[in-house]
Nucleic acid binder design. Structure first.
Length: 155
DNA sequence: GCCAACGTTGGC
DNA sequence: GCCAACGTTGGC
């Protein structure tokens, strides 16, 4: 069982969109390191912090769970799609996605500033300088600490 | 909108 | 393989 942080711009897809949909495709990731996590390392029932990036404020919004492990991101094959990649061959897909299920919205949204202030979280990739990955692993303790900050018990 | 940091591309 | 140019991310 592993834990993750996944980022989305809420103007594009927020935790409330996932709440309505119940299950969502985590598609459109076009970064090889993040792709490798999606394709190889995210397993069914792993838990993810749903992080709102490029938001006011940015921060941790809730939790979701992997319900379908990595499979080809078909949006890469469709010219009308925003993240269309003409070089991704359906016979040998370059990009992958997972499906996630809504778990909960934190009763208290946790802005990035508070995550940065928490010394128990100073080691996580999210707050490292220049970290731009949209999918990144997080250890169990840090995951639970973030949940606690959201006034949420998740253990 | 600005800009730092990082990733990708392509000429050589 | 090097590296400049360009594109993207994402905080502020």
């Amino acid at each position: 069982m592993k834990y993750w942080i996944i980022k989305s711009e809420p103007s594009c897809y927020s935790i409330y969109d996932l709440q309505k949909q119940k299950i969502g495709h985590w598609d459109g990731v076009r970064n090889y390191q993040a792709r490798n996590f999606l394709r190889d390392d995210m397993k069914k029932d792993d838990l993810c912090i749903f992080y709102h990036s490029n938001a006011t404020p940015s921060g941790a919004a809730g939790v979701c769970r992997i319900v379908k492990e990595g499979y080809p991101d078909h949006t890469a094959f469709q010219p009308m799609e925003k993240h269309f990649d003409p070089d991704s061959d359906p016979k040998n897909p370059r990009w992958f996605m997972v499906d996630v299920a809504f778990e909960k919205v934190f009763p208290k949204f946790i802005p990035l500033s508070e995550i940065k202030e928490n010394t128990l979280l100073s080691h996580i990739a999210l707050v490292q300088k220049g970290s731009r990955l949209s999918v990144m692993p997080i250890d169990k303790n840090a995951f639970e600490e973030i949940c606690k900050m959201g006034e949420n018990i998740f253990m």
